[in-house]
């Protein structure tokens, strides 16, 4: 086995091992590893940053949503109260108008009644006067004498009863 037979090469092998390993160590520790770790750190920061931003935006969106819901609830409430007020006002007005109309109608009815009553009375009075005249005339023809208006009236009243 050359690994054990070539003992005279051991010094050379170890020497070049130390040289090359030292060079690689310096390259790694000074140049390569800092670059890799910088890239990894930057990426982690970017990810954290982006996640933070997303979190923040999510918070804002949630805020906006709750504000929107609040506004919506308020608007609904306002609409409801406006509706209620309007309904109440309309009801009040219609009741008032209804009352006025009824009063007016009642007054008109009363007036009409009075008028009818008066008309009726007038007509009756007139008819009675006519009847008295007819009685006077009829009695004058029948009995030849004249009957005064008062007795004719009395006679009529007695008959009319």
């Amino acid at each position: 086995m050359p690994q054990f037979a070539q003992i005279d090469t051991f010094v050379s092998q170890i020497f070049w091992l130390l040289v090359t390993f030292t060079i690689l160590y310096i390259l790694m520790s000074r140049v390569i590893l800092p670059r890799i770790s910088e890239t990894l750190t930057n990426r982690q920061n970017k990810i954290d940053d982006d996640l933070g931003k997303a979190e923040e935006l999510r918070g804002k969106a949630a805020e906006i949503q709750s504000a929107y819901e609040h506004a919506l609830a308020q608007a609904t409430e306002t609409a409801r109260s406006v509706h209620r007020d309007a309904a109440e006002a309309i009801a009040a007005r219609s009741e008032k108008e209804h009352g006025e109309l009824a009063e007016k109608l009642a007054a008109e009815a009363a007036e009409a009644e009075a008028r009818i009553d008066k008309g009726k009375t007038d007509i009756l009075t007139e008819m009675r006067d006519d009847a008295v005249e007819i009685v006077q005339a009829a009695s004058g023809r029948l009995i030849g004498g004249s009957v005064d208006a008062a007795s004719a009236r009395a006679a009529l009243d007695a008959v009319g009863k």
């Binding site: 090469t9 050379s12 090359t20 060079i23 390569i32």
Partner: peptide, 29 residues
């Protein structure tokens, strides 16, 4: 005797290849 041998050559190639591999693959960062 610290002759530069085939062993030393491949140690050198190892250093060059491993460094270049890492440097080139991370150059865009």
């Amino acid at each position: 005797d610290i002759s530069f041998t085939n062993s030393a050559l491949w140690m050198t190639i190892t250093v060059v290849v491993s460094s270049l591999f890492l440097l080139l693959s991370i150059r865009s960062r």
